[in-house]
Structure formats: C-alpha cells, structure tokens
Simulated scan of single mutants.
Amino acid sequence: MQQKPEILETRLVARSRLFGVESMQLRFANGVERTYERLRTPPIPAVMVVPMLDADTVVMIREYCAGVEDYLITLPKGALDAGEDWREAGNRELQEEVGYAAGHLEKLKTFSLSPGYMGHHIHAVLAWDLKPSSLPGDEPEPLEVLTWKLSELEALLERDDCTEARVIAALYMARERLAEVRPWG
C-alpha cells in the first residue's frame, strides 16, 4: 500500500456562501511536492434514494441543476439534517420530493463525489414498500415526478437529460440488488 502524502500546509484561498477553496501543499513519499486545490465542503453527508413502486418501476424527479445549467432526470436526494441518520433522511427526502414514505430502506453504497477535488459523500439507498405521504420541501419550484422501468434503463441512459453518474450507478446497483432480494416475489 502506498504511503499517503504529507500535508505540509492548508490554506483557505476563497470562500462563498456554500464552499471554500483550499490550497494544499503536499509532499509525496518520493519527495515530490505539489500544490493541490480542493473544495472545502462542510462534512455533512447526503442521501440519494432509489424509490421502487414495484419490482421494475422507479420514481424519479426532473429538477434544475445549476452546475450544468439545465433540467436533469435524477433521484430524490438531500443533506442529512442534524441528528438524522441515513434512513430518516432518506424517508424525509422521499416525502418532500416525490410524496412517498418507504417501509423498507437498504443502503446500497456510499459514494464519493469528485474525490480529487472535494470530500463530499452521499449514501445511495434502495427503498420499497412505498406509501403515499408528503412533507413540505425546500425546492424553489415544484419538482416534476416521473416513473421509469428499470428494465428500460438503457433507454433512460440514451437521453440527454439523464447524465448524473451517481444516479446511473445507483440505478444499476438497485437493479442488481432487486434481482437478489426479490421483494415482490
């Protein structure tokens, strides 16, 4: 196993309402020194839910994504509130964004996002046994709720409005897990 580089210095070089940009001076085991920059994000984990109405039907949303300046098809997601675990946050986000609560939640994987530039993590969660239930959300406009068949996942991925890598990974993982557990028989 490789030895981690030594952090010689970290320095905040810019700050916004949500992010900081941090400069890191590193020394690698071979003596080479480099300066890296990374987004310094709050250590608040997030949750992304793959809500299943039945063995093949996933509930998704279309929402505006400022980073790409467009509307994308994605999954319900959001940050964990203080004191929440991933199960509570997953059920809250489901109720806020798609109008369901889940009787069963199972963590698929914790993903890192652009780990070369930031330390953010998100829990991908599979949810089933959905029941109508809603909570007020914090979105600036109503989200478009839609459904898609996992058996037609490749057609979804051909669309120009489904490009988020963590969503794509979670959908494939959910499809595989559902084939193993068969919650609908």
Rank of each mutant, 00 (worst) to 15 (best):
E6A: 07
I7V: 15
T10W: 01
R11C: 07
V13L: 11
A14Y: 07
A14H: 05
R15Q: 14
R15D: 09
F19R: 02
V21L: 14
E22S: 11
E22G: 01
S23Q: 15
M24A: 12
L26C: 11
L26Q: 05
L26E: 03
F28W: 04
F28M: 03
F28H: 09
N30A: 15
E33N: 01
T35N: 05
Y36A: 07
P42L: 08
I44E: 11
V50F: 02
L53P: 13
L53E: 09
D54C: 10
V58A: 15
V58M: 10
V59P: 04
E63P: 07
E63G: 07
Y64D: 04
Y64S: 05
C65I: 14
C65R: 14
G67R: 00
E69P: 05
E69N: 13
L75V: 00
L75G: 01
P76D: 12
P76T: 10
K77R: 13
A79W: 04
A82P: 06
D85R: 14
W86A: 01
A89Q: 03
G90V: 05
G90I: 03
V98Y: 02
G99M: 13
Y100E: 02
A102P: 06
L105H: 12
E106K: 05
K107H: 03
T110S: 14
T110V: 15
F111E: 08
S112H: 11
S112C: 13
L113C: 10
P115S: 10
G116T: 09
H120C: 10
H121K: 11
H121N: 05
I122T: 15
I122S: 00
H123I: 07
H123D: 14
V125F: 09
D129C: 07
L130C: 12
K131P: 01
K131E: 09
P132D: 09
P132A: 12
S134G: 08
P136D: 01
G137K: 10
D138P: 03
D138F: 04
D138T: 10
E139N: 06
P142E: 05
P142Y: 05
W148V: 11
K149T: 11
S151Q: 04
E152N: 13
E152T: 01
L153E: 12
A155I: 00
L156M: 08
L156I: 02
L157C: 02
L157D: 08
D160A: 15
T163Y: 04
A165N: 03
R166H: 13
I168L: 15
L171S: 10
L171R: 00
L171A: 01
M173A: 15
M173I: 03
A174G: 08
E176K: 00
E176R: 00
R177W: 01
R177F: 04
A179R: 15
V181H: 05
R182Y: 00
R182K: 13
P183G: 12
